[in-house]
Each structure stands twice: as structure tokens, then as C-alpha cells.
Amino acid sequence: MRLRVKFTKENYLKYISHLDLMRLFQRAFRRGNIPIKYSEGFNPQPKFSIANPLALGIESEEEYMDIDLEERISPKAFIEIMNKELPEGIRVLDARYVKDNRSITSLISWAYYQIYFEAKNINSGEELNKLVNNWLEMDKIIIKRIRKKGRRVIEKEEDIKPLIGNIVIKEDKQGEENNNLKSVNIVMNCLLKAGDKGNLKPIDLLEAMEKYIQPGIDFDSMGIKRIGLFTERGGSIELPM
């Protein structure tokens, strides 16, 4: 029996890693007596997987995991028990049984992010919007990716244009004046490819933006939140549950 679960990871809990989160759930399942399945062998592990691990420091309003259960419990009871056991920053929003045998990780192909940052080279969100739209007209957007193979560091060029679904400037606000430098506070949403068949990290997107159109992003001010994960079917995107 596979239960698909939607949950959040917000506030200070953005600072716990994917592995920390796995341990946290494992212990919450035990405290809550959730009848989870275990792997065989000397070191039995509970069978559950979280889709598309979040990088440290990124919050999320919509994360997904699949849990294999030994026996059926009602999704409502599951949500109640878990929300009692979990810290405030992690809330279970929904749980449903799925028949699908494919893993949640393999299903996800797009991630939607909301990114906050301060930019000092632009005067308004509108200006940034124009710059971005022109930028996305380019045939290719090449970034350098660094891969480590053992001790060797390999630099590889990659075209990230196919990995960008869209970029929308949601909000802008004039920032405070600091040493005669004015900055604009930007909230930007972007849909980026996620998963095994192409993946773009929001931080890589921002670095590419800075390199090509120089909005003057203050990376110290940046805050990233994942606000959705999607599957793709026949050219349109859908919610995983």
C-alpha cells in the first residue's frame, strides 16, 4: 500500500538537510506508530522516499513523499497523527493512497519557485521583466557547470534554456537607500525543470541572470521557496496528487 503525502518545510526547518529530514520522518513514524514497511536484512530501513530533495536553505510549501505501509490506516488519521508528531515548520497537508507503482521522484519533472532578492542595478520590476524577456529570446543560454569526478574537477558548458519554463516578476518594492545606493526588492516566480531528465537549481538560474543581464542581485538578501512540484503529461503540467 502506497500512501502519497504532501507536506511543507518552512521557516527555520529550511536549514535541515534531506538526510536530516529522512531521519526526522523515520522517528516521527515510530512515535506515531505508523505501520510503515521496512526493508529486509541486518539494517532494516523504513520504506519511504521524498521527491526531489530540497537544497539546504530553501523552504517549501509543497513537498511530496511516498510511504509504503504494512497495513491500511485512514489518510485522515495519518495526517492528524503526523501533525502532532512533527515540528511546526513541517505540516502534512494531504495524504492519499495511490495505485501507481512509479516512484514519486520519477514522476516529478517541474518545480515552481518563488525567489526574493534585492537588486541594485535596476529601477523597477518592469525594467527587470523586460530584461528577462529579452534574455529568454536568446537561442541558447550557456552556463558553466562544475562537476567533480573523484579528484578531478570538470567544467562543462550547458544550455539551460530548455530547462526554464517561465519567469514572472510578481512584485517590486523600492528598497531602503543605503550609501546613496537604491535597490529594488523583487519577488520572482519561475518554473524550472526538475528531476532525472534535466534539472535546474534556482541558484544557478540567478547566477546565469546576473551573468547575462546584470540586475545587480544581492545574493546575501536572497530567499528561495519552492511553491509547487509538477508532473508532465502530454505537454501540460499536472499536480502529482
Binding site: L56, G57, D220
Partner: peptide
């Protein structure tokens, strides 16, 4: 917290 390694060392609220 944004600038340090393992920020969860300092957040408490366990």
C-alpha cells in the same frame, strides 16, 4: 545563518 556551515546547530526548537 545564511552564511554558516550547518546552520541547524544554532536554531534549537528540536
Amino acid at each position: 545563518l545564511k552564511r554558516v556551515e550547518k546552520p541547524a546547530r544554532y536554531i534549537g526548537m528540536e
